[in-house]
């Protein structure tokens, strides 16, 4: 998946029903979404959706052109995986009694994670990282016994260190 995914950073009007319009478009055109994150932007008239799509099932040019036809979509930026920094957040509740807790804290701190809740026989940990990194974290937590795990889906911004190459911005309704 890591080789074939595309990241679309979609600026939309912050109005009721916009998520439904975007999600519905993917459904009816048969495009697969790997992950989807939505949040308000620095300007409260707009929200930003970070949509990770499967490049194999979804012809990316058609996806962006069809998305552009949605009236509340203001701008779409297409990020190739290599040109983007991507992060997501993982929280997991792991079985850990008093004797296993310190091991677990050590493990999580390797990934700059934190323990955010502690119970009698479990702890809840939080780690932010790259999608690959979080896969590794999940694998390492598994032997302790994961009772619940959630990931946010990724957010992404263009990579800066690759020079000043401008992003490919696909403006509304332009070719």
């Amino acid at each position: 998946m890591e080789q074939h995914h595309h990241i679309l950073s979609v600026l939309v009007e912050n109005k009721a029903g916009v998520l439904s319009r975007v999600a519905g478009l993917f459904t009816r055109r048969g495009y697969n979404i790997f992950s989807l994150a939505v949040s308000p932007t620095e300007d409260d008239r707009y929200s930003r959706m970070t949509v990770v799509v499967d490049g194999d099932s979804s012809p990316i040019e058609q996806v962006t052109k069809q998305l552009n036809k949605l009236i509340p979509v203001i701008e779409i930026r297409e990020l190739a995986a290599a040109d983007a920094v991507e992060r997501e957040l993982l929280i997991a509740t792991v079985k850990a009694g008093p004797e296993e807790r310190s091991h677990l804290i050590d493990l999580v701190s390797i990934f700059d994670g934190q323990v955010i809740d502690v119970g009698v026989a479990s702890v809840t940990v939080m780690v932010a990282g790259t999608p690959d990194g979080l896969d590794a974290v999940a694998d390492l937590l598994a032997p302790y016994g994961i009772s619940e795990l959630q990931r946010t889906g990724r957010v992404a911004l263009p990579r800066l260190i690759r020079g000043s190459r401008p992003l490919k911005a696909v403006k509304s309704s332009e070719q």
Partner: peptide
């Protein structure tokens, strides 16, 4: 005023 609708 439809910022997201600008036909070519």
């Amino acid at each position: 005023d439809l910022p997201g609708y600008k036909p070519t």
